[in-house]
Design a protein around this nucleic acid. Structure first.
Lengths: 142, 142
DNA sequence: CTCATTTAGATGCACCTGCATCTAAATTGC
DNA sequence: GCAATTTAGATGCAGGTGCATCTAAATGAG
């Protein structure tokens, strides 16, 4: 098998290991603050952005690139924590509509400073805006 | 909370999403070929590099940055699959020595072409060596 | 030597994920 | 309109992960 060039392997290793440590830092900070995991933030943000009419689970699944069963269970957990509301969909008897609750908004807002602080410390303090732009440009080629 | 600059947020999102899709591609290719997950490759490689004298689980844990319990269970699974051998450590009655088996070497070697092909298609084909070097340089600042 | 502390590794429990499959409603083809 | 197919969403099961804790051996202080 033709082995990828060492610099390509280095790129791979670096991408994977940095993203892992960054993710762990965010998850740890959230847990430490008694807040839900990062996946909930992304979901709450999408649901909040959908506005008062909410959105369908399959739309959430597409936007977050989650598997269908993962979405179903994530919504279960968030509903149990009363961060979202699920109601039957009028247009489609199979479906439902998901909306964020007041508590859900509050929790998302509480998560942001914790989340942002990690991004600030681990990324903003280490990269100039030019570096960051360059990084996005390079990663976007993948 | 002072929100990180948008380009910093873009960098974060890009790092996380690209590493996720790359990892999923590697895992899917391995699974598709009937091979073990990526974590096993890393572990087998470290154990193989340790040579005939093997290494201690705590050393593996440090090299792979895994939690202690994760290492213990990963070794359980690999031992059950007969890819490694665990023997008691003479020097330390609490410890053990882990070595790769012939089958373990064969499996690791079978994994590499599958793994390498994904790296080749998803990274090498998309980035010049200069791009890759630049990417490593930027990510290394984090 | 003896007791307290540290270190290596295993494990019970709760929770999360992937896979396959199921139910029910919507859509399509005839 | 009706049977076949597709789509939305839920779920049983097997396995993986984090957390806390446990056992046993090594180390260290007196």
């Amino acid at each position: 098998m033709n082995t990828p060039d060492p610099v390509i392997q280095a790129a791979w290793v670096t991408i994977v290991s940095k993203s892992r440590t960054l993710l762990e830092a965010v998850e740890a900070a959230l847990k430490n603050a008694g807040l839900p995991p990062l996946a909930w933030y992304d979901a709450l943000l999408e649901i909040e952005k959908a506005g008062p009419d909410g959105l369908r689970p399959f739309e959430l699944k597409e936007r977050l690139l989650l598997p269908q069963y993962g979405t179903s269970r994530l919504l279960d957990r968030m509903a149990k924590a009363e961060l979202i509301e699920r109601r039957d969909c009028d247009d489609d008897g199979r479906g439902q509509i998901v909306c964020i609750s007041d508590k859900g908004q509050a929790v998302r807002q509480a998560m942001w400073p914790v989340y942002a602080r990690v991004l600030s410390e681990k990324i903003e303090d280490k990269l100039s805006p030019e570096d960051a732009a360059q990084l996005v440009k390079l990663l976007s080629k993948l």
